[in-house]
Structures are given as structure tokens and as C-alpha cells.
Simulated scan of single mutants.
Amino acid sequence: MYAKDVALLVVDLQPDFMPGGALPCQQGDAIVPAIAQLLASRRYATVIATQDWHPADHLSFASQHGWRQPFEQILLHGQPQTLWPDHCVQGSAGAALDPRVDWRHADLILRKGTQREVDSYSAFRENIGPHGDRPATGLAGWLHERGIAEVHVCGLARDYCVLWSAQDAAISGFRVRFLWERSRPVSAENDAATRIALEAAGIDLL
């Protein structure tokens, strides 16, 4: 078991990010057994799971922008925004946490992306403004108050929500380790850039 000041953060382990889902990561379902085992082993005294939880008319959806197509980029609140297929709509089967994991071992389930106008890749901050100066979700304070000093991050998608969560955890004052084999990307073409970003943030691969 890890020290009590180490937490596990499982990001967006939801069917819509797996093969057959609305926005599949490459082999996104392959990491489920390993993450399920991590939670069942109780190696972490503190476990947090995030859940993408969008209203049906969320502005990150290409369907809300007329002729725009999924994966195009626009400016939203002055920042680049990738337009996505409709995914993880509140209450839908694709938005549920994967049932193969026993989520009773999670101490907190954080829903993000709940505001129509704001996307939320990171578990720690909304997608408005530059890194480190974006509105907080409150997760950092919750972890600090529980005495957490180190966060291990895994889940989906490696090149977006997991990466941003790891970066923001580091900015928030935590030691961060990235569980590379327990994550999968939207596109493996982004893996090199993801590794560079993690190294620049001083984040270790575990």
C-alpha cells in the first residue's frame, strides 16, 4: 500500500471514450482491468474518479456550431477549442463510469464539463484562460485538506484530460506520477507531444 499522502486519480473511464463509443480512444477499453485491479487492491488510501458530464447542448460539441465538423478548432472564450462529437451527455449510457470497476472504493467522484459554455479537460481547472490561471474545480483544496502530497494519474484520454489533469496537479503543488500504461490517447500521434509536455512539467512516468 502506498503512503497515506498518495492519491490515485482515475480520469473519465467512461464507455463513450472506448471502442464503439462516441469519442473512442485507441484501445481505451484495454486499461479497464488494470485500473479495476488497482482499486480492488486498496493500494491507495484515497481514490478520486472524474466523470465527463455534459449537457446535451454543450458548446464543445460540433453539433452546436452549424456547419462545423468534429475535430475542427475554434476560439472559445479566447482560447483554442477542439470541437468534439456529442459525448458523455448527462444521464446517457456513454457517460456512466465503466461498470467493470468497483467504484465503491472511490472516495470522490468529480463530475466536470457540466456548464454549457465551458469545457473541462482537467480535474482541477476549467478550460478558461492560460494554465495555472483558470477557474478551479475545488479538487486541489480537497486533496490538500486530506494531507495528500502526491497524485498518480491514469485514465482517458492520455493526450487531453489525463494530461491536463496531471499538469494542473503539478501546478497545484502536488508531486505527480503519470501511469502511462494505464492511459490511452485519442490519437497515438500525440504521444510524443504528451511525453514532452509531461517532462516540461516535471512529471514522472510510472
Score class of each variant (00 low, 15 high):
V10L: 14
V10N: 04
V10Q: 02
V10W: 10
V11G: 02
V11K: 01
D12R: 04
D12C: 03
L13M: 15
Q14G: 09
Q14L: 12
Q14C: 08
P15K: 10
D16S: 08
D16W: 04
D16M: 09
F17H: 10
F17Y: 15
M18K: 12
M18R: 07
P19K: 15
G20P: 11
A22P: 08
A22Q: 14
A22H: 12
L23A: 13
L23P: 10
P24V: 09
P24A: 06
P24M: 06
C25N: 07
C25A: 15
Q26I: 12
Q27T: 10
Q27I: 00
G28K: 04
G28V: 04
D29G: 11
A30F: 07
I31H: 03
V32L: 06
P33L: 05
P33R: 02
I35V: 15
I35R: 01
I35T: 06
I35H: 04
I35E: 02
L38M: 14
L38G: 00
L38I: 07
L39F: 09
L39Q: 05
A40V: 06
A40P: 03
S41M: 11
S41A: 15
S41T: 14
Y44C: 06
Y44N: 06
A45V: 13
A45D: 12
T46D: 08
T46L: 11
V47P: 00
I48W: 08
I48S: 01
A49P: 02
A49K: 05
A49D: 03
T50Y: 06
Q51G: 05
Q51Y: 02
Q51V: 03
Q51I: 01
Q51C: 04
D52G: 07
W53I: 08
W53V: 07
W53F: 12
W53H: 12
W53N: 07
W53R: 03
H54W: 07
H54I: 04
P55N: 01
A56E: 06
A56T: 00
D57L: 03
H58N: 05
H58M: 09
L59K: 13
L59V: 13
S60D: 13
S60H: 10
F61A: 01
A62F: 12
A62P: 06
A62I: 13
A62Q: 07
S63Y: 09
S63R: 14
Q64N: 03
Q64P: 02
H65T: 08
H65M: 10
H65Q: 09
G66K: 08
R68C: 15
R68S: 15
Q69A: 10
Q69K: 15
Q69D: 04
P70T: 12
P70N: 08
P70I: 13
F71D: 05
F71N: 06
F71Q: 08
E72T: 12
Q73K: 14
Q73R: 15
I74Q: 04
I74K: 02
I74D: 02
I74Y: 03
L75T: 14
L75I: 10
H77D: 09
H77A: 09
H77V: 07
G78Q: 07
G78W: 11
G78N: 05
Q79P: 03
P80V: 14
Q81P: 03
T82R: 14
L83D: 13
W84I: 08
W84G: 01
P85G: 02
D86H: 05
H87P: 02
H87I: 02
C88I: 05
C88S: 08
C88F: 05
C88W: 05
V89Y: 00
S92M: 01
S92G: 01
S92E: 00
A93P: 01
A93Y: 05
G94C: 06
A95S: 12
A95F: 01
A95Q: 00
L97Q: 00
